[in-house]
């Protein structure tokens, strides 16, 4: 298996063979975790930095009335909370949305990377900035985009993020998310998600087959969503 972290970080820095070797050493030991498991809960003291090798993870918060708000997806190659050792308590929770393979790293592993591998350090900064940019774009979606564009925008974003780590091909990828997860991500009800999905399907913008999302005309979907990939900063290297 190619290392999804390396595939991703190549966009943030010019890595050397030595850098790649170090990144490969990171992923030698990983854990398999079932879907729907909390990795860490709100107010827990964070102990590890996590790297996703397979599957989808989300960041979420639970509101007082029990509703869930999903505020980020982590896909293979995504590394989260690099400087987690600085914060004493988690202000949100993380859970697996699908079965996942995850590497748990102690903070001193990150300290080694950032101290002794300057190009990896640069790429990790890049990935942290991209994470913030994605959050800004989600904020724009939630605040201003209608539900159908919001969903289309998410589909476009996932296409590019999953292409980076060779999970998506030119116009399709496995989408193992439930209606509930999509609803909690877009801030709409499952009934509304269904309507929007079926509307997009009727219009030929998306096709679902064998748990894959197929986008027959990527440019058309991008135009529909008002999607500009600049915030993913994939053209750096």
């Amino acid at each position: 298996m190619s290392n999804p972290l390396t595939l991703k970080l190549e966009h943030g820095s010019k890595l050397t063979p030595g850098d790649r070797q170090r990144l490969d050493a990171l992923i030698q030991t990983s854990c398999r975790i079932e879907a729907g498991q909390d990795l860490i809960r709100e107010n827990d003291p964070p102990e590890h930095v996590r790297l996703i090798l397979e599957g989808f993870v989300c960041r979420y918060k639970i509101l007082e009335d029990g509703r869930r708000s999903i505020i980020a997806y982590l896909v293979p190659g995504d590394i989260c909370d690099l400087h987690v050792a600085i914060l004493r308590r988690m202000d949100h929770a993380m859970a697996t949305l699908t079965p996942c393979t995850i590497v748990f790293m102690a903070p001193d592993v990150i300290a080694d990377l950032t101290t002794n591998y300057p190009r990896i350090a640069h790429a990790l900064w890049w990935s942290t900035l991209v994470d913030a940019a994605i959050l800004r774009e989600w904020l724009v979606s939630l605040g201003q985009r209608p539900a159908d564009q919001r969903l289309a925008h998410l589909f476009c974003e996932l296409l590019l993020r999953l292409q980076t780590v060779r999970i998506a091909d030119e116009n399709s990828y496995p989408l193992p998310l439930t209606q509930e997860a999509l609803a909690d991500t877009l801030g709409i009800s499952t009934v509304h998600v269904n309507r929007v999905l079926q509307q997009m399907r009727e219009d030929g913008l998306v096709v679902f087959r064998d748990h894959r999302l197929i986008i027959p005309d990527v440019e058309q979907l991008k135009e529909f969503a008002g999607f500009d990939s600049n915030y993913l900063h994939l053209d750096g290297m």
Binding site: A95, P176, Q179, H211
Partner: peptide
């Protein structure tokens, strides 16, 4: 949390 997954005709 639900374990159902979106499929072409609906959900599992």
């Amino acid at each position: 949390m639900s374990e159902r997954v979106l499929t072409p005709g609906g959900v599992d």
